[in-house]
Structures are given as structure tokens and as C-alpha cells.
Design a protein around this nucleic acid. Structure first.
Lengths: 197, 197
DNA sequence: TTGACAAAGCTAACATGGTTAGTTTATAGT
DNA sequence: ACTATAAACTAACCATGTTAGCTTTGTCAA
């Protein structure tokens, strides 16, 4: 009757990802995953460490995927061009995988080596793309926080339906990026003179 | 044994607010509220329309409160000064009432007149504070979306623990505001000179 | 080929949370 | 003092998550 459904942790994860992206991360249930896989709920525990474990797996996948796509967007570009492309990739990922994106936001427990490593990769891409601006010490941190705030804020307000008016959202995003980059450059003119390549 | 606990919808709301702010909006449960009030769970249904109703009440309170504090911060100020003060009030509110702030983000159903009105008040304050910039048509919408993204993005990343490094967060926020405002002003120099159409 | 073992599925049982129905009781107004 | 209403209660049900323990299946070695 149950001819060994041939599951593994990865197939469970992929199914959970689909559900989380489709119905929202908060509405992800083990019951839903089990139903989608055609097995009973407790059988999931053979592959996944309960709901917290599944959520962690989604977070890890999402964070790695985000880092990957940001890196891909940045490669071969520099300066504001790189930042704009990274920001677009960030937004695209958040739209294509709202569930995984939401999962990736929960800050990892300090013991979770893999998840912290993945988060570090995202961090590194953003840091790398801001490097040409020659920001010193805390200024780099401020700039990274600012850029992440801009990207995350826009994307989540979009996702939550916070932008009611029927005005082109791409245009709003591009405008916001332009404004942030312009402000970043002029706030930094002194350092900017000492440029590199 | 149960000498009529003297409850009403407002006292239930206040208790729920405390719990949501203390333990997070997602962890708010009717069971927790009932326990805090010293009554049994089903008795709550005399005051509140289930968990969805309670959440809506929190959202309404939060949105009204936010509108109120933003208005208070803006009064008597103009230009970038007003914007900075509104942004600080936004951040302060989100910190003091993380639960209510989270609740206020869910976009109201179209039939909910009160909640839509409150959301409109927030909208109006942000619009008012950007008025001196003489933004035409869609440009005002773009600017409002940008400002809300900046404020919301920073505040939620803070709340989720997204800013790991031990660098002063106030400073990061002020820096971000300055950058955004600088970019906004210079992106708009043309219009700024030609004051009215 | 077969038999033992581990893994993967299952059922059963329990906890917590939300919800509804129906009952009792406190209190306010007549 | 009496009654009507509103506020509390108990009981019951459903969904989800979790654990324990049983059964089946697939594989690998004797």
C-alpha cells in the first residue's frame, strides 16, 4: 500500500519550499508538506527534525541561494553598476522565493555553522560591492546597513502589499536606488577623490 | 469563584498588546491572553472576534498610534528637519511596540473602514512631510515608497537581529537618513528651482 | 538464495491552540 | 426582589506538532 515513497531530506525540502513560496512562510505546516508528499505527518520525522528543523533547512537554502545570485549579479561589474545589479537580483530573489527569503531573515543560532557561513557570504557580497567607495571603518558598516535596509524595506513592503497605488514599482525601486547611490557618493566625496582603477 | 473579571474589549486589547510586544506578534495566542487575564480561553470570545479579530484590533491600535506619533513629530517642522524627526519617531515606535508595528503592516481588507482610514493617516503624514520637495505626480509616490522602505527596512532588520556588528545603530540610521535626503534633494534640483507649475 | 538489519513508513496517543455550543451566574435596571 | 443580559464557564471538536512503538521493505552479507 505504501511502496516506499523514495523520499529524502532534499525532496522534503523542495516540497516545503514550494509551499512556503506559494502560501507564505508563516502558513507552512508539516501537515501540508506531508499531504503534498503523499505520506502521513509523522513519517516526515524520518527526514526532517520537526518544523524547526525544516524551517532551518529552508533558511539555509534561501540564504545560500541569495548569496549565489547576488554574487552572480555582481561579477564583472563595479561601482554603482554592481550595486544596482545586486539590488535587482536581491529583489528578484525575494519575489521568486518569498518563503525562502522570509526564512533567510531569521538570524541563525551561533552554533549553526553552515547557516552562519551562508549569511557571511551574503554579507561578503554586499561588502565587496561597496568596497570601491573607500569607506573607512564603521562607515562601511553604516553603508552596508543602509543598502540592506533599502533593499529589504522595499521588497518586504512590496510583498506585504504596502504599496497600494498603481504606480510602477520597478520605477520606484530604481529611483530609490539612484537616490541612495547619489547620496552615498556625495556624502563621501572626500574619499572618492582617492579612487582606484 | 469567578467574580466577573470586569473585562472589556479594550482591556483585552491592552493585554494582547503587551504580550505581542513582549514575545513577538507571531507568538501571540488567545491562550496566552486568557491566561494573563485570569479567564478561560473561550471567555475571550465575549470580547473579541477570535484571533483574527484580536489581530485586527492590534493592527488598528498600532496604525492609529503610529499615525499619531508621526504627526506629533512632524508638527512645527518642515523640510528635511521634519523628515528626520518623523523617521526617528517611526523607529522609536517600532522599537517600543514591535508587536503592534508588525500588526500594522498587514494590509487591511478593503471593507475595514477604520483600519483603512488609519492607514490613510500614516500615508498623509508621510505625504505632507515630502510636500516641500515639490514632487510632481508619480514622483511623490516614488519618494514616499522610498522613505517608507528606508524606515521600515532599517527598523525590521534591527528587530530581527540582522545587524550583527556592534556598531552604533543610531548612527547608522542617521547616516542612512542623511544619505537618502541628500539624494532626494539633488535628484530633484530641477523641480526645486521651478517652484510651482 | 535467504535471512537479518536498518530505514522508512505506519498507527496510536497526547499536548496545545482555536472555535462553537450550550449552561450557569453575576450584576444592573426595573 | 426579580428579571434580563452579558460574562463567565464546561464540554466537545478540529487541526497541528510531537513522541513512542509497531510493521514493512529494501539491501547486503552469509
Amino acid at each position: 500500500m505504501s511502496p516506499r515513497a523514495n523520499l529524502n531530506r532534499e525532496r522534503v525540502l523542495l516540497t516545503a519550499l514550494e509551499l512556503a513560496d506559494a502560501h507564505g512562510y508563516d502558513h507552512l505546516t508539516l501537515a501540508g508538506v506531508a499531504a503534498a508528499l503523499g505520506i502521513r505527518l509523522p513519517s516526515l520525522y524520518n527526514h526532517v527534525d520537526g518544523l524547526p528543523g525544516l524551517r532551518r533547512d529552508i533558511a539555509l537554502w534561501g540564504t545560500r541561494q541569495l548569496a549565489d545570485e547576488l554574487r552572480r549579479a555582481a561579477v564583472g561589474r563595479a561601482g554603482s553598476d554592481a550595486i544596482v545589479h545586486v539590488a535587482r537580483a536581491y529583489r528578484t530573489f525575494a519575489h521568486q522565493h518569498p518563503g525562502a527569503y522570509t526564512a533567510s531573515l531569521q538570524h541563525p543560532s551561533p552554533e549553526d555553522v553552515q547557516l552562519n557561513a551562508a549569511a557571511g557570504e551574503v554579507f561578503d557580497v554586499v561588502a565587496a560591492v561597496l568596497r570601491p567607495y573607500n569607506l573607512q571603518g564603521d562607515d562601511l558598516i553604516h553603508a552596508m546597513r543602509g543598502l540592506r535596509s533599502v533593499m529589504h524595506g522595499f521588497v518586504t513592503l512590496e510583498h506585504v502589499g504596502g504599496f497600494g497605488m498603481s504606480v510602477d514599482r520597478e520605477a520606484s525601486f530604481e529611483r530609490l536606488l539612484a537616490i541612495y547611490l547619489h547620496g552615498l557618493e556625495s556624502s563621501n566625496t572626500g574619499n572618492h577623490l582617492a579612487k582606484l582603477p
